[in-house]
Amino acid sequence: MRKFLTCTMRSWWWKILCFLILAYVVVGGFLMPVPRLDILNETIRNLYFHVPMWFTMMALFGSAAYYSIKYLRSGNLKDDVYAVQFTNTGIFFSLLGMSTGMEWAQFTWGSAWSNDPKQLCTALSMLIYFAYSILRGGLKDDEKKAKISAVYNVFAFAMMVPLIMIIPRMVDSLHPGAGGNPAFKQYDLDKDMRLVFYPAVIGWIMLGYWIASLKIRLGLIKYKKDIAF
């Protein structure tokens, strides 16, 4: 499994595929037809760019939690490198998602921050992940750092799922899909928009993994250097 992964990280075919998909998304995202809706107007096209940021973040945090559990089982510091870099890239995408969301909200909901349940819960889970970075920065010993942060990371992921995916759907929200599953119901998303939205989600997730894979490879080089001394 690891051998397969390290090979995939270094191969080009999926990076080229990612480029092609996102090229289609950038062009199609602006030129393909969208439904005419009041207030939203053309900003509905933000769906192709703002929402995939969160999908990517969730995918990356999910992978990070997987590698944290793997580290706790194996005690191999390489798994810790994977977990850390997946988390860091996930935090990067969460910042992108939050700032794009606030820009969009400024012009459609009237203010960048309106204490919407999804905004609040997302901010909470972002703070939980910031604390992960601070926790790691505060510990000196590598083994101890890896072990404590792996346990914390599993907790952080277990908190993120209800905070982002469950609570906002149980209460009224400005976000679409309150009291249901957004974007996947037949009437929520226009069929023209699906043609761009689904590739957008896949393409952005691939880009997230590409960036994470670069950071992981750097982390592994550093790890090898450290044990060489």
Binding site: R10, K15, W210, I211, L214, R217, L218, I221
Partner: peptide, 11 residues
Amino acid sequence: LVYIDRKISRL
């Protein structure tokens, strides 16, 4: 990204 990727490969 391609530039960084190749650089890391060299490293």
